[in-house]
Structures are given as C-alpha cells and as structure tokens.
Design a binder for these strands. Structure first.
Lengths: 345, 345
DNA sequence: CTGTTAGCGCCTTCAC
DNA sequence: GTGAAGGCGCTAACAG
C-alpha cells in the first residue's frame, strides 16, 4: 500500500494525501481527517521513510559513532550515560539514533552511514578514514566529543583542572609513594607499568594527557617531582583488563607498593578497591584511591569513591543539541565537581 | 557528486559504476579498479544509502525496540548485554543498529521506523500500538525477547526452572522469614509491599510471573506455604527506585525482618547488600540474599552474589541471527546456570 | 562485458 | 484548495 494507491482509492491526487500527512494547513481539516482515517482503515501507516528521505534529503536519523566496539561501549557506564543524554534530546525532537562503531569488523564503513543527517563522534577513532568519509561532500553536521577534530565543534570536560583539583585534595595528606594509573596513554598498547622512555600519545589524541597534566601540576605544587611518580597504563576500561594491572601494583613488596593511586577512571579505581579488599589492604588507611567520572556504582558502595564527577548525560545532550542545530556549533567545555568520598578522605 | 556524475566524467554508463560497487564479477577487474580509484579521487564515497534503500527495499538497518526508555535501558546491565550481542551479530553481517523506545516522548512512532529491515522487540511494550504498526503490511521479520507476541518467534530464558533451582538451594537452610522482592509484578505500579489481594499482571505480560512460580514450587516442596511468604514489588531496576523499598524491608523490627530475600534481579540484590551493610546487618549470617541475572558487578564485589546467570549477550546474538534469517524463526529457550556466591552459600 | 531504460515512493513547484 | 508532472539517486532487467 503506497501513498499513490491510497490516493487512487480515495479519488484524490497524491499531493493531497501527502499534504494530509505533512502540511495540515494546505487542505481542509475535514478532508484531512477523512484521508487520515481512511489511511488507518486501509492499513497505510504513513509515507515510507526510505522514499521520503530520498526525496527530502533528510532522514531524521542521527548516527553516533563510537571509537570502541559497541560491545565495550554499551557496557561502559560513561558511554552509556552519554548515549542516554543524546537519546533524550533526539527523541524529544523526533529523531532516532543509529549506532556505528569505529571498529567495524565489516570491511568498510557501512553504507548505511550515509543515511544519517548528522554525526556525533565519541572518542578518538583508531583510523581517521571513517571520519574523512563522514565529512564528505554532503556537509552534514558533525560533533566531536572528548577529542579534537579540526574544523569541527567539540564537547569537552575540563580535564586538566579537574585532575588538578583531585590531586591537590589527595596531596593534602602527603603520600610516601604516589602512583598514577592511566587509561590509553601510551602510543603502543600497554597493560603494564610505563617505562620512563616510553612514547606517549600526543594531547590531541587522548584526554588522558590533559588529565595527567593536572596531576603533574598538583605534584609540582607540593614539591613532588612528577618524573619520579611511577605510572601504569591500561588500554580498556573494564574490570577484566584492569584487574591484572592493578594486581601487579598491589602485589609489589610492602616497601614499593604505592599508598596513593590516582586513577583515570572510576572503573580502574573500583577495581583497585576490590583487589585491595581481597588482599586485606585497608582503604584508605593502607591505600588511598581516587577515580574519575563519578559513576553511580562508585557512589553507592562502600568505601565511597573520591572522584571527580563529569556529567556525561549533559555532555550527550549538548552534543545532540548541536548536531540538530539547536545550539550554536561552537566548542563547549563542561565543568566537573570534586566528590570527596571515603576512598581518599 | 552522484553515481551518474561519476559515470559521466568517466565516460561509462551508470550501470557500470553501480556494478563496480555492487557486483564485482559483472565487469573486468581492471575497469572496476579504475572506477573505484577515480571515485576516491573525485570524492565519491559510494552509492547513497537513501537512494539505494529505496531502490532495493532493504536498508541493512535493524531496529531494536526497547520497552523502557533509552535512558533506562542503556544503563541497565542486562539490556546493555543484550544490545552487545545484537550489535556483534549485526556488525559481523554488515548491518547497523537503530535504537527505538517503546516510550517515545514524540507523539507517535517515528516515521524512521519504517526504514528498518526487521525488528527486535525487548520487553513488553506499554502499548501494543507500536507493535501493530511494525507488523504492518511490510511483513518484515520481528523477534520478541523476554515476552510473548502472538505469531512471532521469541527468545526466552528458562525463568521458572531457574528460580526453582535458586529457591531449592536457598531453602536447604530453612529460613525463618523468607521474602520475595519482585520486579514489575503488580498490575498497577507499586513500589512497596504487595497486599494479599492485589491484582498481578498475567504470565503473558511479565516474566516475573514465571520466576515467582519457580520460587513457589521450591517453597511448596519444602513445606512452606507460598501464600504466607511476604512479597514486595519494584517498578524499575535501578538503585534509586530499589533503595527505598529495600530500606522499608530492612528497617522492619528484628522479629519481622526477613532473613532470606529472594530478589528478581541482581540490581535489587546488590541494593539489598549495600543497604544491609549500611545497617550493620551481616550477609549472609543475618540476612541471606539471592539475585537473578548474573551481572558482572555482582560477581566481583564482596560478598559475591548467589544468583542465576542468564547469558544476555547470547540472547541478543540469537535474536539478531533470527531477525537476519540466519537462524530459523522459531521459539528459543536459553538455559541458565546457578551461581553460588557468598550472599547465600 | 557494457549501455539503455524504467521505475522504487514520495515531495514540491506550478498551473488551475 | 486541488491535480499533473518531474525527479531525488540508484539498481535490475534486458539488449547489444
């Protein structure tokens, strides 16, 4: 059943039916109601989305491109919150959400990406090819979240000041052996301690760099040489990947084991809390731990995490509003708030 | 830049360009390579998805319709795992994922739903209107997960036997005051204790009903009258909604407070563990707790949850394979495994 | 192996 | 307020 069929059986032109669905003020209310009710009766459920989008050039679909695999992203609290915020705004404005991953197993970008009216890209892609294609001639809006993309509006969090604040708080009690646990900081994948001469990703490619800068500023201010602070790196923000690295840290001999762990995410910090518990290490007496993100899980279990809260839902809302053209397409910086919990009072 | 333009500048017909992209064996490798490289050079990134989908009738997009709001679903571990499994299969077969919610705030079903090649519907919709429209004349495949939809293939978990198994395990140590904490069991929304005469949803409308039947079978087998077991109900599987109800239970006077809590989800059980800890109640000595789902969070924190693990990722994979026509469209029942943790040894 | 042709279903000027 | 006509970009027959 197509619009044309319907017009045929009603004895009106296709334009009139189209108007009944799309431009109420172009025909009499009475006729419109008649058409709509007949449509329902005959089982015509409105203009076909495929044809409509070809004709109008718009699909009312926004694609969210996630750097990581969908499997990972959907199970990450921060990414989920971001998606929630995006979905909320899109839904409120009659748009729907198409999920794409930067790590498609399929050979190339799925053709279906060209159907979207705009893109929200989250986290740095392993390859820029995808982005290049998205930015193609169509000139559809694109918003980058948590990384920089030349010539495109971005949404960021104040990573450096946030980590400075948390570092300053943690250093009020002077640690004997502080350490930093990073997330995707090294140029080459590494789930282990970072060697002093190891090559790191540039600041433009990972927010961890800004966060580290914040910690370093706090260290310097407290007379601690940042170069002397041992660092570890973790590639993926999951318990499974974090656990071995954290175990390596906690299983160091007593006189080498850090007594302060500045972690780049709450997931890392929570893993540290769990493994410390298992080893009979008391938090915060034997080991103080800080996180980043402020995810719910860290706030309702004991000991409550000392961390910095970023409003990922709001980040998503803003990105969505930008891509829909409701907000001006300009760089945005969200502020964070320090949450002082029990893991580092 | 369209396919036609490209054909024009290369001096070949549009069919040849189309073949270069879609049917490699319909033209010489040499010509194909030439066309593809010229396309890249001129900035043509392949056939437009909108036009292609209109022409072929297929979009390579599968829509997942979630009963709850996207905000809720994305933050629920079980729904996220389901989506992971779906995404994994779709991705492997060159399809992408469109997210729809049964609780659209937008007036009606978004027109964009008619773009999908098939639907996976998760959890019972508040209204069947949406489903009716999806099932419209198009006859596109539809798979229902965790609820029944007449005439459509479904994917279920063995809820009744699973709860029978967990109940049997828990009742090996005879509780003095067992209780059940349900999820969406009552006909009318209720976040409180369920009155004996309160109307419940029919089994076809909530899996909780099957789960409860499993518990009741275990009770009966142990000579406990199910009717004498107090029940509570919770409407949404989040800490925020669970906490007040659990608090109400735990704050009962000592001689009324349950010493065994059979919970319909790990989220509920974890909330109970947290609130019990806060009140100085020891788990499992003072209060034994069981869950359902087997989510990661319940397995790596102490005390490890006694629960039943359902493989939601696999559930998603199966649903996706069915909707893509890779598996036969027939009812499927997945098995669960009992996980005996420390919350109810 | 390559080119021609006829729509897929709809929206939107333009004339009436 | 209504109808006729063209084309959005592409693919699948069919011819050559």
């Amino acid at each position: 059943m197509t619009l044309k069929d319907l017009a045929g059986s009603l004895g009106v032109s296709t334009a009139t039916v189209s108007n009944a669905f799309n431009r109420p003020n172009q025909l009499s209310p009475k006729l419109r109601e008649h058409i709509l009710s007949e449509a329902r009766r005959l089982g015509y459920s409105g203009p076909d989305a495929k044809a409509r989008s070809l004709r109008t050039g718009r699909s009312r679909i926004i694609a969210v491109v996630l750097a990581e695999s969908l499997t990972y992203s959907l199970n990450d609290a921060v990414a989920s919150e971001l998606l929630s915020g995006i979905a909320e705004v899109l839904d409120a404005h009659g748009h729907t959400l198409l999920l794409l991953s930067g790590r498609q197993s399929g050979a190339r970008v799925p053709g279906s990406s060209s159907i979207a009216d705009g893109f929200i890209v989250y986290g740095l892609m392993p390859s820029m090819m995808l982005i290049d294609e998205l930015q193609g001639p169509g000139q559809r809006p694109l918003v980058a979240v948590d990384f920089d993309l030349e010539g495109q509006p971005t949404v960021h969090v104040d990573d450096e000041p946030a980590c400075y604040a948390i570092g300053r708080h943690a250093l009020q009690t002077r640690p004997r052996r502080p350490a930093v646990v990073n997330l995707r900081l090294t140029k080459h994948p590494c789930n282990a301690r970072i060697a002093p001469d190891q090559e790191l990703l540039p600041a433009a490619r990972t927010i961890t760099r800004s966060r580290l800068a914040g910690f370093h500023r706090a260290f310097a201010e407290h007379g601690i040489d940042p170069a002397g602070v041992p660092m570890w790196n973790i590639e993926e923000n999951t318990y499974e990947v974090c656990a071995p690295v954290i175990a390596e840290i906690l299983d160091l001999p007593d006189d080498e084991r850090p007594d302060l762990l500045l972690c780049m995410s709450d997931r890392i910090a929570l893993t540290a809390v769990t493994l410390a518990e298992q080893r009979g290490l008391r938090v915060p007496q034997d080991l103080r731990i800080t996180g980043f993100d402020g995810i719910a899980e860290g706030q309702y279990r004991a000991p409550r995490l000392t961390t910095v809260r970023q409003d990922s839902v709001e980040k998503g809302r803003i990105a969505a509003r930008m891509v829909l053209g409701l907000d001006p397409a300009e760089p945005r910086l969200l502020h964070t708030t320090l949450l002082i919990g029990d893991s580092c009072p």
